[in-house]
């Protein structure tokens, strides 16, 4: 998909530039952008290393495990079809916690394990179960508390206060997750098993 989009972006740009006579601008933009990309990654190196370093401590101290254990009981009302204590719930809570903390690399493996466990409970193997739909909707409603990369981009472009968007971002994330849960629950009622 991205192969197609990427090629399209460049070809559209060149075609439009040919039509509007902006070839010189396009040449400059291509070179300038490549340089900007490297400068940006230099800023990112610092910010992201700081964050992943901190998160490694949290992981080693068992903080991630404890948080997902604490979360599991909260999941029962969201996933009434999963038997209590089933492995799927553990993977789902690990996935949610990793997403909340912004640990993408930990979230995806746990999420895929959760899907595999949910598939075992699923009577129709080609159709998503209610629990799968709910899990995916919450997962895609964005759960991350602090989007460290956005803060890094903001500071690279000289924001006076890069972190001023954390609070509003958190509220917006909460709203999107609540909306997702509400729609999921509503659709569950309308659909069969």
């Amino acid at each position: 998909m991205l192969n197609y989009i990427w090629g399209c972006m460049i070809l559209t740009g060149i075609a439009v530039a040919a039509a509007t006579g902006r070839m010189q601008d396009v040449t400059n933009a291509a070179i300038e952008s490549a340089k900007d990309a490297v400068m940006l990654c230099v800023t990112m190196l610092g910010v992201m290393s700081m964050w992943t370093g901190l998160m490694r401590i949290a992981e080693r101290a068992g903080l991630v495990d404890i948080m997902s254990e604490k979360m599991t009981p909260l999941l029962n009302p969201l996933f009434p079809d999963i038997p209590r204590g089933h492995k799927a719930l553990k993977h789902i809570s690990t996935n949610f916690i990793a997403n909340i903390l912004g640990l993408g690399w930990a979230a995806t493996p746990a999420g895929i394990k959760a899907m595999e466990e949910l598939q075992k409970l699923n009577p129709r193997k080609d159709t998503a179960s209610k629990s799968m739909c709910m899990f995916m909707i919450i997962n895609m409603s964005s759960l991350q508390l602090v989007t460290m990369n956005i803060l890094a981009y903001r500071s690279q472009y000289n924001s006076a206060n890069p972190s001023e968007i954390i609070g509003p971002g958190l509220i917006a994330t909460l709203i999107s997750t609540i909306a997702g849960i509400a729609v999921g629950k509503f659709c569950e009622k309308g659909a069969g098993r």
Binding site: E116, T127, N139, S141, A179, V183
Partner: peptide
């Protein structure tokens, strides 16, 4: 696509609708 493909599910029912509404709300 990553998650559903990993367990070979093709009928995703209301997942997309729900996720899109959540994102639009955000």
């Amino acid at each position: 696509s990553v998650y559903f493909m990993s367990v070979k599910i093709t009928k995703t029912r209301y997942t997309l609708t729900g996720a899109l509404i959540a994102n639009v709300a955000g």
